Simulated scan of single mutants.
Amino acid sequence: MEGQQLQQVLNPQRLKSLQEWMLKSSITLTQVNGQRKYGGPPPVWQGPAPGPGCEVFISQIPRDIYEDRLIPLFQSIGTIYEFRLMMNFSGQNRGFAYAKYGDPVTASAAVMTLHHYRLPEGGCLTVRKSTEKRQLRLGDLPTSTNQGELLTVLRMLSDGVEDVLLKMPGPKGREVVALVNYSSHYAASMAKKVLVQAFRKRYGISITVKWMSFSKSKHVAETGQDDDCFTPPALNPLPKPSITPPHLHPQPLLHDVPSHPPIQPFFRAVGGPAGLRDEMMPQAPVNHDAVSQLQWICELYRLGTPQYEVRFHRTSSDGFLCFIFKILIPGLLFPLCGFIRILPGTSIQAMKVEVYRAAAEQAIQTMCKVSNLRPF
């Protein structure tokens, strides 16, 4: 009886179509940890792995629909870096999957085009931007912790560490906290599993490790707007700032970002080697590209690497494409959000460059307004 039910659930014709498609397209699917994966990267991929904001979450998938229908559908939007279909022990899919593209603009186009897409076999897909947590919060660190040396320690204990921001205790003596940014959700997940034990075993100290998330509410997920974000009041992009690097000594951007690391090194506090030097002052960008300029500012003030999240919003009556953006900067207590209008470009890549440029310009202006940072 159970065998007959399983036979009905799996649908032999659909399984046969999947096998024929794999042979015809030379696609390789790998089963690992309750999911079946394509790519990551695929054989034809060139360049680095995609950053944040490039993945979409697909739900409401009929249980007998497989990659032979889903991958070509999502490849019609752009080149897929990775596709993961969640599977259960019976061979059914679990009703949801993830598709990762090369850039956030292509991912936004997939959401815009395929959300509520009706499959010929039946069923209506739900497609949304994926929430990719890549930042961990380390608490209960020693008061003598040094930011540069903590970065070295974390890179020894876990893979994919991009940068770290140390928040020292305030006047009320609160705990020392570090915000650690990883290159991927997978790298952060692996680190979360090992860091507590590694710090206890190697250095004899007990720390806490938790996820950091910028998702405030369902309202944020659905609208892309956050009550705590800086949202420009107008639809048009703010005027372009002059972005010549300043030659004066910089002022602190936030009161809780230390201009100099603590004197006593982290290694000495936890029993490791001391004497490592801080990272050199980052060089100012030689071009006038706003994205490079924002990266330089964040390096200068030790704020971490900016992470861009872009979502297509609508097409206005005058033909402009409207995007909502959010830039997550680890050293800021809030994301920088805004609204951008651009004219349709000749390619997705061209539109991506224009959206990122306009987002970076707005972020620079906002940072100048809310801090003592001199305008450029």
Rank of each mutant, 00 (worst) to 15 (best):
132 E>Q: 14
19 Q>H: 09
96 F>H: 05
303 L>R: 04
212 M>N: 09
120 P>Y: 05
216 K>R: 14
11 N>D: 05
246 P>K: 03
254 L>W: 07
269 A>S: 15
273 P>H: 07
294 L>C: 06
129 K>W: 00
160 G>A: 09
326 K>S: 15
367 M>N: 11
267 F>Q: 08
372 N>K: 14
104 P>S: 03
314 R>S: 13
199 F>C: 03
323 F>Q: 01
374 R>W: 08
330 P>Y: 07
135 Q>A: 04
338 G>I: 12
77 I>K: 12
305 T>W: 08
41 P>S: 10
45 W>G: 02
43 P>W: 09
254 L>Y: 07
129 K>P: 03
335 P>Q: 05
129 K>T: 02
118 R>H: 13
218 K>H: 10
366 T>V: 14
72 P>T: 07
142 P>G: 05
171 P>V: 07
151 L>M: 07
312 F>R: 06
103 D>V: 03
176 V>M: 10
32 V>T: 09
175 E>Y: 06
3 G>R: 12
81 Y>H: 15
61 I>Q: 00
306 P>Q: 06
36 R>H: 00
343 L>M: 15
183 S>H: 06
309 E>I: 04
4 Q>E: 11
284 A>C: 10
171 P>F: 06
252 P>R: 15
30 T>I: 13
151 L>C: 07
128 R>I: 06
207 I>Y: 07
320 F>D: 01
336 L>Y: 00
153 V>N: 02
50 P>Q: 03
88 N>D: 07
13 Q>L: 09
319 G>N: 11
187 A>N: 15
129 K>S: 04
7 Q>D: 12
2 E>L: 12
197 Q>E: 14
331 G>K: 02
116 H>N: 14
51 G>Y: 15
21 W>A: 13
114 L>S: 05
23 L>V: 08
77 I>A: 13
275 G>Q: 10
98 Y>H: 12
348 I>Q: 08
42 P>Q: 13
333 L>P: 05
62 P>C: 04
26 S>I: 04
360 A>I: 07
277 R>G: 05
308 Y>L: 06
179 L>K: 11
10 L>W: 01
308 Y>H: 10
156 M>D: 12
341 R>L: 14
310 V>A: 03
356 Y>R: 02
287 N>P: 04
281 M>N: 04
248 L>T: 14
345 G>V: 13
261 P>V: 00
359 A>G: 09
175 E>L: 07
119 L>T: 02
54 C>F: 08
308 Y>M: 10
284 A>V: 04
87 M>S: 01
7 Q>M: 11
116 H>W: 04
224 G>W: 03
29 L>T: 02
85 L>P: 00
185 H>K: 07
98 Y>V: 01
285 P>I: 08
280 M>W: 05
110 A>M: 07
23 L>Y: 06
153 V>L: 12
220 V>H: 13
96 F>L: 01
194 V>E: 11
168 M>F: 08
98 Y>W: 11
251 Q>E: 14
340 I>N: 01
198 A>T: 08
86 M>C: 00
347 S>F: 04
364 I>M: 11
12 P>R: 10
365 Q>W: 10
236 N>L: 11
50 P>V: 01
138 L>E: 06
202 R>W: 06
346 T>R: 12
238 L>D: 13
290 A>Y: 06
346 T>K: 09
